[in-house]
């Protein structure tokens, strides 16, 4: 499934909720499916620090595909991280570099990517793209 297809699938999943509370409950559930970062990779180097919540991100590159694992100390942040990992994992560096995150906007969670939230998610996206760029250069 391409990045775009995965994003569309997420939009469809979220479109069934009219109530914000149901949407957040679903997000909390999704956080539980996040491919968790191995404790040994939960290092200071892999920490994306925000003033509100913290995100850890790790990436490996195999057969032209990048696999991300992550974690966060906040449940909602973890839920959104899970969405980002689901969309960007198992993709080639090029498709990650060129992808946008408009689906977050479309499912009504844009506010979590605002810089004032300072929850590490903005930097997480940037970091995912940096990983892609680094793997591409190395390849």
């Amino acid at each position: 499934m391409s990045i775009q297809e995965k994003a569309t699938q997420i939009e469809e999943e979220f479109s069934q909720f009219e109530d914000w509370m149901d949407k957040y409950n679903y997000l909390i559930e999704l956080g539980k499916d996040l491919p968790l970062i191995d404790e040994k990779h939960k290092t200071k180097q892999n920490l994306i620090s925000g003033c509100q919540s913290r995100v850890w991100l790790h990436a490996v590159y195999e057969d032209d595909k990048i696999q991300f694992t992550a974690d966060s100390d906040a449940v909602i942040t973890k839920g959104i991280a899970a969405l980002l990992v689901r969309v960007f994992s198992d993709e080639s560096p090029d498709s990650i570099i060129n992808a946008d995150t408009e689906f977050i906007d479309k499912i009504g969670l844009k506010e979590h990517l605002s810089p004032t939230r300072s929850n590490g998610l903005m930097s997480m996206i940037k970091q995912m793209k940096l990983y892609a760029l680094a793997f591409k250069t190395k390849a």
Partner: peptide
Amino acid sequence: DIHPYDAGTIIDKMGIAVRTGH
């Protein structure tokens, strides 16, 4: 043990402005 960011997000959705963080 609820993270202040999680609590703050929901409290905000309920129309209440509180500060979360450090």
